[in-house]
Amino acid sequence: MTVRLDPADAAALIRARFPEAVEAVDGFAVRLATSALVEVCQYLRDEPSLAFDYLVMETAVDYIEDDYLELVYVVRSLQHNREVVLKVRTDGRDDPVVPSLVDIWQTAEFQEREIYDLFGVRFAGHPDLRRLFLWDEFRGYPLRKDFLPLAQ
């Protein structure tokens, strides 16, 4: 049975190594500081007692009223059968930039391209950041809440 690592425990684990990294914890996820994302993920993957070797899913949510986009990472350890959800908030909604996780989990490659395509989040360090589904000339980011389909 997959143990959903309690976000509070996960936050404690991360804080023990990176005191500044955790911004907030709720019942679902641990919210990290954007600057600490890559090193925390690297640590989560490489530390043998954690061994979070599998990025299940990466996506974004547009919280337009609070003026930020939130990226959600579901990370799993196949070895220990444990799961934790990480989150990162972008700084505003105009051309947000988030570090890419492709070097840690290769599966992020297509999913980050999808997020770039549909939400317009740029991923620093992504090797091939192009639109995944829509054509290159497409203007706007369809999954943002202020996207008006007919206005295109």
Partner: peptide, 16 residues
């Protein structure tokens, strides 16, 4: 739903 996302196995299996 405010956000509806599918972790699509077909897409992710294409990564390698």
């Amino acid at each position: 739903p405010y956000r509806f996302h599918v972790r699509a196995p077909s897409l992710i299996n294409l990564t390698p």
